[in-house]
């Protein structure tokens, strides 16, 4: 029962797991950021149906457990004949389902993070911009968004970190990512529950640290005194 050789044997499988976790997370983050940004612009739009759609999307998906989303997507979509694949990236049905479930769920939170960022920009800024004759588009791109972006970074990174951790749920729906490795490691290395758990937890901590570090870097880089 030597620790080091056992860790050496476990490590490749743990790294394999985290590779899948990374793939799921990065693709979900990209998708959810795009969808979330569209939703956020709907929620602040002057057009009522868009606003209603954005608000109901956020209320529905923010209050539904992610597991229920996974059930809907993983068990439900095959019945509808929806079977997406992305072979160039080595993503089968289950990986694609996980990405769909994760990004539809995370998009609601991204939307709220962006909206709260736009909210922090003082009303006077937009009023001043309009007063000097900037159009809606100019106001948005030259005045509001550059300021909102800085305020958006911390809440958005919180959402990204949560999404990274939430990708663990894919383990219960046919994807062998990091958390999914736990049961197979326990099976192949009896008596190593603690070791496997701590190695996997350490992996997640590294991911979370990297994201949090990037966020504080960005914050410092673009810090402004207000």
């Amino acid at each position: 029962m030597d620790l080091l050789p056992q860790i050496g044997e476990m490590l490749p499988r743990i790294l394999d797991g985290f590779l899948v976790t990374l793939k799921l997370t990065i693709l979900s983050l990209l998708l959810s950021t795009v969808v979330g940004a569209v939703l956020a612009s709907m929620r602040v739009s002057p057009v009522a149906p868009f606003r209603a759609f954005g608000t109901s999307y956020v209320n529905v998906f923010r209050n539904t457990p992610l597991v229920v989303m996974f059930i809907f997507v993983v068990e439900g979509l095959p019945q509808l004949g929806v079977r997406p694949r992305f072979t160039t990236l080595g993503l089968g049905y289950f990986e694609m389902y996980a990405i769909i479930a994760l990004s539809t769920y995370t998009a609601a939170f991204v939307c709220e993070a962006i909206r709260s960022g736009v909210n922090t920009v003082a009303t006077g800024q937009a009023e001043a911009a309009r007063a000097v004759g900037l159009t809606f588009g100019q106001t948005l791109t030259h005045v509001i968004l550059p300021q909102a972006f800085r305020a958006v970074v911390p809440p958005l990174v919180s959402v990204y970190i949560a999404c990274t951790k939430n990708s663990a749920i894919a383990a219960a729906f046919g994807v062998l990512e990091a958390t999914g490795q736990l049961s197979s490691l326990i099976e192949d290395f009896p008596g190593s529950v603690y070791l496997a758990f701590f190695l996997l937890a350490a992996g997640y901590m590294v991911l979370v640290f990297v994201l949090a570090g990037l966020s504080s870097l960005v914050e410092r880089r673009w810090a402004v005194s207000r």
């Binding site: 663990a168 383990a171 958390t179 529950v193 603690y194 758990f197 997640y204």
Partner: peptide
């Protein structure tokens, strides 16, 4: 805070 809840649940369940 950094560990996924599902990983915690599975760990306590198995151990």
């Amino acid at each position: 805070r950094a560990t996924p809840v599902l990983l915690l649940i599975l760990f306590f369940f198995f151990a």
